[in-house]
Design a binder for these strands. Structure first.
Length: 664
DNA sequence: GGCCCATCAGGAGC
DNA sequence: CGCTCCTGATGGGC
């Protein structure tokens, strides 16, 4: 079934954030690139010093080409939604702290014209002067009321970046026992008060920019994009003029799955009304036909469709995941006695026909996970033959090809001799685990003082380099080893309709989650002949990559501002990894001009030596069965530099609205 | 370490 | 302001 994933919803357009900055490359000029290693870039460093460049920095500065001449393809010149202050170009190497805080110009605080957003008392909000406008959402009043895909994606990414940062700060604090951290609430209310939201105009039916199959990890996310506004309640409704008086109609419901719903048919939902639970979750009284219950009743009478969000508990992280499953019609309602003997409203909802599958796909996956029915088109249940701790299925639902060409599966990178470091590595001297916030930890210091991952293992920010703990550190249960612990999501290699084999996940993936590394035979770019530099299975760090903004915006929340959050860093890694003969799942990840995955250099030990690895992380939340893609970049020699965009050698079929047309 | 449960502080919208 | 609401993190028990 070729289209099953393809048309279920277009997730290829995940990333269309307008790049805020230009990713300026500093490349060792062509073939004179320095030997890959020699001077170990990894330390030991003096305490507190964290090198900006992973490789010998001395020469990079001098070879820095005129950055303004390195032109990048700018596929999406979009209206300037939000913009951060552009810092004047600075000599790189030592990058000073850039603060996003504006001078405190106290008082005179004015609402943006026509703002309808209710605000809490802002702590210290900059004046809406042009030079300070950047700290506001940058989303116009009109866009706040009625969104679009681009805005929805942008709001979600900005929320999650902020949430990860709050989470990082909370983790670093020595918090008293029993204090519950709610980074989601902090990030959510920050976004609310700063106007980082869209579709505030409440409406039944379709919400512009929210697609069927979109997933959410927090209730606040659905609130911020106008899918479902209550932060806890399950029924959202709107008061409209009726024939005689005003009456509520339901706009959306969230089915948490806690109540007795599912009868096996994913298109049918039996939903329980609200109320009667005065005492926590125990029902102590009859439910009344008011509020949400009344709204559902009125919607039934009016034949008004209701958006349904399906919640599902993920066994892995104790987390609940929500999936927007499109519009449902309320077919009937009744009252029945609940377990405690009190009256409970019930509503039977049936999914409107003609919508792409979403929750149904998800439930099908649950069954595959349990191993009950065999996966359609399955060629191999585990193409890694046990090399990965989680199996990787090989599937072809498109044609008769029974697998990709032969290669050796390896979970690790194989480095050639030239990579050998001359100095031994050294780690930290923490106990069994490194504690975020412990600035005595060498490894944390190498990361600029911030623990790079959240407590559940999500990457907080993109950086020029992530320094992970290594086997030579004593910390056995340390969380700073995310990319060394193997894959955590259930992946599948599948035959795409027009791009050969591709990679996707059975599991929903959170933004910032580690997906896999790029395994293969690593070569020093400076020692490889140009001609043999690239084939279909080559990863090349020296390509030109389209910049994008992923990290949090310190300007949104003063208390969050810290060190350099620029993503405008140089990539002086002359690293090439060939996965033609040896590789892992990463070799199947296709290119997209609007990718949902990005790569990040990470350093950790491998066979008692430190190496740079290429690790892939999710840009945004990725629904199950959505193809995973990243930006392959463009080979540097191909591009012209005088104002013309760079083009690759290969024709691009990514299908993105912002497709550059070629890559590689 | 994983799963299940009880506990609790929460934010927004009515 | 006060109330409600199909949260989400935490810690204990097994």
């Amino acid at each position: 079934m070729a289209g099953s994933a393809g048309n279920y919803s277009d997730k290829t357009r995940v990333l269309d954030i307008r790049p805020l900055r230009t990713l300026k490359p500093v490349f060792p000029s062509g073939n004179q690139a320095p030997p890959f290693v020699c001077a170990p870039p990894f330390g030991p460093f003096p305490p507190g010093f964290s090198p900006f460049y992973p490789f010998s920095a001395s020469q990079t500065n001098q070879h820095t080409p005129d950055l303004n001449q390195a032109q990048y393809p700018q596929p999406h010149q979009q209206p300037q939604r939000y913009q951060q202050p552009r810092n004047p170009p600075e000599p790189s190497l030592v990058t000073p702290l850039r603060s996003f805080r504006s001078p405190d110009l106290s008082n005179g605080d004015t609402e943006p014209e026509g703002s309808t957003v209710k605000r809490k008392i802002p702590k210290k909000r900059p004046i809406a002067r042009p030079e300070n406008m950047n700290f506001e959402s940058g989303i116009s009043v009109a866009d706040r009321e009625n969104g679009n895909r681009e805005l929805v994606v942008s709001v979600l990414m900005r929320f999650d970046a902020l949430r990860r940062r709050f989470s990082q700060l909370e983790d670093a604090k020595e918090v008293a026992v029993g204090i519950i951290k709610r980074a989601d609430l902090k990030a959510g209310s920050t976004c609310m008060s700063r106007g980082v939201r869209t579709n505030t105009k409440k409406r039944p039916g379709i919400v512009p920019g929210v697609e069927i199959g979109d997933i959410f990890f927090f209730r606040f996310e659905m609130c911020l994009v106008g899918l479902h506004s209550p932060s806890m309640a399950g029924i959202d409704y709107l008061v409209v003029k009726g024939e005689t008086e005003e009456e509520p109609i339901a706009t959306s419901i969230v089915s948490s799955g806690y109540y007795d719903n599912d009868e096996g048919n994913p298109d049918v939902l039996i939903y329980t009304g609200q109320g009667g639970n005065a005492d926590k979750d125990k029902q102590t009284s009859d439910q009344k036909l008011e509020r949400g219950n009344l709204a559902l009743e009125k919607s039934l009478r009016r034949n008004s469709a209701v958006r349904v969000i399906r919640g599902l508990k993920e066994s892995s992280h104790n987390a609940k995941i929500y999936m927007y499953d499109g519009l449902y019609e309320i077919k009937e309602s009744w009252v029945e006695k609940g377990k405690s003997g009190h009256n409970t409203f019930k509503y039977k909802l049936v999914r409107a026909p003609g919508q792409p599958p979403a929750f149904a796909t998800w439930t099908a996956i649950q069954k595959w996970q349990a191993g009950l029915p065999s996966r359609q088109g399955l060629i191999l249940p585990d193409m890694t033959s046990g090399a990965e701790s989680i199996p990787v299925s090989l599937v072809n639902e498109v044609d008769t090809e029974n697998g990709p060409a032969y290669f050796t599966y390896s979970t690790t990178v194989i480095y050639s001799e030239s990579f050998k470091l001359t100095q031994p590595s050294f780690g930290c001297d923490c106990g069994t685990s490194c504690k975020p916030g412990n600035l005595d930890c060498h490894c944390i210091r190498k990361n600029g003082g911030d623990f790079p991952y959240t407590s559940i293992g999500g990457l907080v920010s993109r950086k020029p380099m992530i320094y992970e703990c290594s086997p030579s550190c004593p910390c056995s249960t340390c969380k700073n080893k995310v990319t060394q612990m193997g894959q955590k999501v259930r992946l599948e290699v599948f035959k795409t309709a027009n791009r050969g084999w591709g990679l996707r996940s059975w599991d929903p993936i959170r933004a910032g989650s580690f997906i896999c590394i790029y395994a293969g035979e690593a070569k020093d770019k400076s020692k490889v002949q140009q001609t043999m530099a690239s084939d279909d299975y080559t990863f090349d760090t020296t390509r030109v990559y389209t910049p994008f903004k992923w990290n949090y915006e310190p300007g949104l929340a003063d208390e969050v501002a810290s060190e350099e959050m620029s993503e405008e860093y140089d990539i002086p890694l002359p690293l090439i990894i060939s996965a033609k003969n040896v590789g892992n799942v990463a070799r199947f990840m296709n290119h997209s001009c609007s990718p949902n995955v990005f790569w990040q250099p990470v350093t950790y030990e491998n066979n008692s030596q430190l190496f740079v690895h290429v690790a892939f992380f999710a840009i945004s939340h990725i629904p199950p069965m959505t193809e995973l893609t990243y930006d392959y970049g463009v080979t540097r020699t191909i591009g012209t530099q005088n104002g013309n965009p760079l083009y690759g050698k290969k024709k691009c079929f990514c299908g993105s609205e912002y497709c550059r047309g070629s890559f590689g």
